[in-house]
Design a protein around this nucleic acid. Structure first.
Lengths: 220, 220
DNA sequence: CCAAAAGTGTTATGGATACACCCATGA
DNA sequence: TCATGGGTGTATCCATAACACTTTTGG
């Protein structure tokens, strides 16, 4: 066979990103109104097509940067979605990623008029199989949150333990015992106490922590 | 934009299957000598291209059936591998699956001359990124083995608890305490004792078990 | 002076681990 | 009769869960 590849079918391949954020004590998802048919105007995850000379991971990073202005963001692949008719417009195979970002750093990029942070508890129905992508992403984040220092990606660089506790609580969907949580999270060794004090959220002031810079997870 | 899709690049999409089997107390992987360039003659996972009108899951099932003669096999998606030059011949995005099958049921199919069951401990180097696919698959199987009744997929329909224990041990790579293992595996509720007795492996005879038919996991 | 959040240890409980002997049978 | 694998229960340990009070300070 002279060139085996040539006989094969090619496919559009997209990346869809479930971008999670946190503000006001609420877990949010960045979604936007799809600007073209099919499904024009329907809510959709942030996505885009993989381009010729970029890896799928790079495509996901590029899309995320285009839509949020951020790079070096914590992002992981969830998996591939490849039902024949998942996109009724054309056959498109989607590789799904999830990301955790600090909403405060978010800058409107592409889709600036139609992108919104939506309360995860009030999520509208999403297009195609995007609902499944979101629920599977959240499950994976829940299973990773005690394994890797990912929760802090939803907060500014410096944060108090109480702020981080709220993040754990909204991600896991349940309240945590303050003392047990503090013991657990500190035993992990992800966090280092800075000598700075946050005076905004309490009169007494709370110690500000950051993720151990040696662990800088982010991408990769 | 009249048809947004048309402006996009298309890609070859393949499925690669890490097919695990078990015999003689050893965990094995089905690999074959790649029949075409690049890498002709090198060891490779079982794989094939996704075709026009099949989902990626169906493509993986088809490839598995073509190479093993088996259907209704336990198979799960691992994830997508999409480095630009992962396949030096052409840009190919691969969706990787792993499967657990009963080696005794295996029939040589496609690649009958070059496919082999190889001891996981003596695995040769595989082509491209297939080594990573295998090690990630094994990790995922290890994390699922106590969650879902997947280990029995490596055995015939009826098996003794001791046979199943060996499967757990070779998958997890460590010895298990017989009494603890038996308590755990029976508490899961996956197994039902049949009234049949296996006399082949012991003089006394051992009760034969099967997976609760209501749980028939297989594909899906 | 008091409301509001920060910070801190100990006990209780339940799941996981370690461990040893009797049973049934074919050769 | 004995060698071989089958089958069974309990005590210990460790990790997780439950639980309440003192501190600090801005208003």
């Amino acid at each position: 066979m002279p060139n085996y590849y040539n006989e094969q079918t090619k496919f559009y391949v997209s990346v869809d990103c479930a971008i999670f954020g946190y503000s006001d004590g609420i877990l949010k998802l960045l979604i936007h109104k799809r600007p073209y048919d099919p499904g024009k105007g329907d809510w959709s995850l942030i996505g885009g097509f993989v381009e010729k000379d970029e890896s799928i991971d790079d495509a996901a990073k590029r899309v995320l940067t285009e839509f949020t202005g951020l790079d070096k963001v914590y992002m992981r692949q969830l998996g591939a979605f490849g039902e024949v008719n998942r996109d009724p417009g054309e056959r498109v195979i989607s590789i799904t990623y999830f990301a955790l970002i600090d909403v405060a750093k978010y800058k409107k990029g592409k889709a600036q008029h139609t992108a919104e942070w939506v309360d995860m508890n009030l999520l509208p129905e999403l297009i195609f199989d995007h609902d499944r992508m979101v629920s599977q992403s959240l499950k994976k984040i829940q299973s990773l949150i005690w394994e890797e220092p990912i929760a802090a990606n939803l907060l500014p660089k410096l944060f108090t333990l109480t702020q981080l506790q709220r993040v754990y609580e909204v991600v896991l969907g349940k309240e945590l015992d303050k003392r047990n949580y503090r013991r657990n999270v500190q035993e992990q060794g992800f966090l280092v106490k800075t000598n700075k004090i946050d005076k905004k959220t309490s009169k007494r002031g709370a110690a500000l922590f950051q993720v151990n810079p040696l662990l800088a997870i982010e991408n990769s």
